Amino acid sequence: MFPENGGYVVWVSSALGPFWGFQQGWWKWLSGVIDNGLYPVLFLDYLKSDGLPRIIAVLLLTVALTYLNYRGLTIVGWAAILLGVFSLLPFLVMGLISIPKLEPSRWFVMDLNNVEWGLYLNTLFWNLNYWDSISTLAGEVENPGTTLPKSLYYALVFVILGYLFPLLIGTGSIPLDRDLWSDGYFSEIAKILGGVWLMTWIQGASAVSNMGMFLAEMSSDSFQLLGMADRGMLPECFGKRSRYGTPLLGILFSASGVILLSWLSFQEIVAAENYLYCFGMIVEFIAFIKLRIKYPSASRPYRIPLSTTGVILLCIPPTLLIVVVLALASLKVMAISVIAILVGLVLQPCLIYSKKKHWFRFQTSSDLPDVGSNYRGVDEP
């Protein structure tokens, strides 16, 4: 990554030009906003909220978490850590309670004829993506070339444990019934194993973990817009910071998108954000390989220890998975996503035209490296 805000937008701009850099930013920002609309849905699924109380809760949650983002990354970071710790504790307790009831043979039960592959792959892809989002905040991190790789390593360990441990508990400690496994089912498992008190704790912890994800995702989305504004891709107003150093307009735009999308179902949100995210990842892979070829000997604080041929081979498996996810999308999701892509294709020329007509003020920060020619002292995307 480049040691500045914008992340993948800057990678793609450097490799493929500003037009595709803008499209990358549009796809990833919209995908992130759609993804963030999922967390209030999951939050309220765990609390069994519906109807008017659900609508009011979405609005209040969005406003409260948006305010935390406005107050700065330090608050967001500590809040996310505390929420993460709180959300993991009841699963550790549930794991201890479940030990006498575990039957390891249940972990190996399979019924491949009774799998909704589209939903499965979309959910799996959603659970394991967005690792590149941290790049949009690189300009806010001290010594990102060293700090971010370490953070990603530790995050990978926690993610694996955070998914694997509850699944081993849930599938190994109670009789298997696939029809019961839906949003919020871990709270039902907790009730079976420990009673109402553990169910309530799991419900609260699971809901709280979604709040932490919301905070992190909104920060990434808003700083991405700030990075695009710093490069003259968006009007200057998107680059204005609040007194807390946060991109106010980017936060408001991201929050508005969340409210508009929170009425959709879990499956619809996951499929829609995955579709746009997939396009963005393909372009990132292309930019990654092209920058390797274009600047093979450039100084990089972090370099993937493979040759150019090696990194091409490295990108093939995830690309194949992306193609499968795209192919399994419903016609409704495809139509919505294609419309969103077309909007981006039209929006970028419109912004250039508005710049020429001086309808909006655009300004490129003088502190940034030259995207077209300067590729020194950066990490690899």
Rank of each mutant, 00 (worst) to 15 (best):
F165E: 00
Y163Q: 06
F125P: 02
N129T: 15
A64K: 11
F108T: 12
N127F: 06
D50K: 12
T147G: 06
D50P: 01
F108Y: 10
Y67H: 13
I174R: 12
G145W: 04
D183P: 02
L148G: 02
F91D: 01
I75Q: 11
L119D: 05
I160P: 04
S182W: 02
V63G: 07
G72W: 12
V85P: 01
P90I: 01
N129G: 10
L152V: 11
I160F: 09
G139T: 14
A155Q: 09
I192Q: 15
P144G: 10
R106N: 11
S151M: 10
V159I: 12
G170H: 00
L112P: 00
L121M: 13
L89Y: 08
T74S: 13
I169M: 00
Y120M: 14
K101M: 15
P53N: 02
A57Q: 02
S105V: 10
V141R: 02
L180I: 11
G184P: 05
L89V: 14
R106Y: 07
N127I: 10
F108P: 04
P53V: 07
L128T: 12
L193P: 08
P90L: 03
D177Y: 08
V141G: 09
F125W: 08
L176G: 08
F91S: 02
F125Y: 08
G77H: 08
L124D: 03
M94H: 01
G51F: 12
S105W: 04
V141P: 07
V109C: 03
F165T: 08
V93M: 04
W107F: 13
L156Y: 07
G51R: 06
P104K: 03
G72A: 14
T123A: 09
F108I: 13
V157M: 04
P166F: 05
D183T: 11
P90Y: 00
L167M: 12
A57T: 07
W126G: 01
A80S: 15
N129E: 06
L176Q: 13
V85F: 09
Y185A: 09
L121E: 08
V76H: 02
N143C: 12
L68M: 15
L83E: 00
L161R: 04
L82Q: 00
L176N: 06
